[in-house]
Design a protein around this nucleic acid. Structure first.
Lengths: 195, 195
DNA sequence: GTCTATAACAGGATAGAC
DNA sequence: GTCTATCCTGTTATAGAC
């Protein structure tokens, strides 16, 4: 049975994703991608006729799909804002493997200088993230403008914490980001009762 | 006069720095470094016998030196904390070209996976930054632990804002980071007088 | 669909003239 | 110190057997 797929598409993308998240686009060689997936280079080209570029494209698309389902959508759910954040925190923790995995939005930014091939997708992703976090902040009672600022700060903290994790070789920054997210985005909780 | 340097060392490092900050270590090809500096590959090897690795090393060392002089030292000056931050904000703005230049600490993290050749320097830099920002926070009246948390958050916001700038193709996140830094680190100013 | 083998090319690095 | 020309390795990508 050499005719059937030796690895299903989801797992394949997941393995490729790991590599791109670790070393970025330029840093990822086909040899490395081949090893990580267990497929020979030629097999990778069979599944991705446009080569590395296509692999990264599909990895990014898959990630954005996951984010939409597990981050953006929950942020706009009808649940109370703090509950939404709690769910999102859990999902972020899983998505970034507790801070051990970097963010594609960072690792795929400007592979070559100039607005690389991922620029549009990345820009759209950041905007969608800010927008969704803003929604939660507004639902917690913040004005549009203030909520948006909090959302932007949240994304900065997310990205920054991941950068620090890589730099320090520790997941602590990401953990403290996660534990502070609700208050950062929604505001300090009232000491007693609801406002 | 082909015997004298066609470009002085400082300018040379600055040009190389630009490339590494734009595309990272793996992304920077010798051709690109050659074009950016106006020197042929062989000339680059004359100045940096150990090749690209050495170029990146020296670029990083130069950056860390600059940071020490213009960021770390001012943060521990005897001036009032808010004045220190004002000075640091100005220097950060220049260093990152108003958000147009990425941070080497991010771009040189894990060129290959595993603790790359820059890992130690990068880790040390993050620790020094946190430590120096902590000092300013403590001098503003925060307890050691709280000050340290604020310092870590400040670095996260710095790094995250730069990531967002690249992703969005806008310098706005960096600007809002800069304008909020003093309050983020030292706390909201008392509405009237000093506490 | 996957493999081995190889082509075609770009990357980092050197030699040697000036 | 800088240049032109070149080497060698590793990279992306393809051909063709199974």
């Amino acid at each position: 049975m050499a005719r059937t797929q030796s690895i299903d598409n989801e797992e394949l993308i997941a393995r490729l994703s790991c590599v791109f998240r670790e070393v970025g686009y330029e840093g990822a060689s086909l040899t490395q991608l081949s090893k990580a997936t267990g497929l020979q280079k030629a097999s990778l080209y069979h599944r991705f006729p446009d080569g590395k570029q296509q692999m990264a494209d599909e990895v990014l698309a898959a990630a954005l799909g996951w984010v939409k389902a597990h981050i953006l959508t929950p942020l706009r759910s009808p649940a109370p804002p703090r509950e939404r954040i709690a769910a999102v925190v859990e999902n972020l923790d899983a998505f970034y493997q507790g801070g051990r995995q970097a963010c594609l939005l960072n690792m795929l930014s400007s592979p070559r200088a100039e607005p690389g091939p991922f620029a549009d997708a990345i820009k759209g992703a950041f905007e969608a993230l800010v927008s969704a976090f803003s929604a939660a902040a507004r639902d917690a009672g913040h004005e549009a403008k203030a909520g948006r600022l909090r959302a932007e700060r949240a994304i900065m903290l997310l990205q920054g914490s991941l950068v620090m994790c890589r730099g320090l070789g520790s997941v602590k920054p990401f953990k403290t980001f996660l534990s502070g997210l609700a208050d950062d985005l929604l505001g300090e909780p009232a000491p007693r009762g609801r406002p």
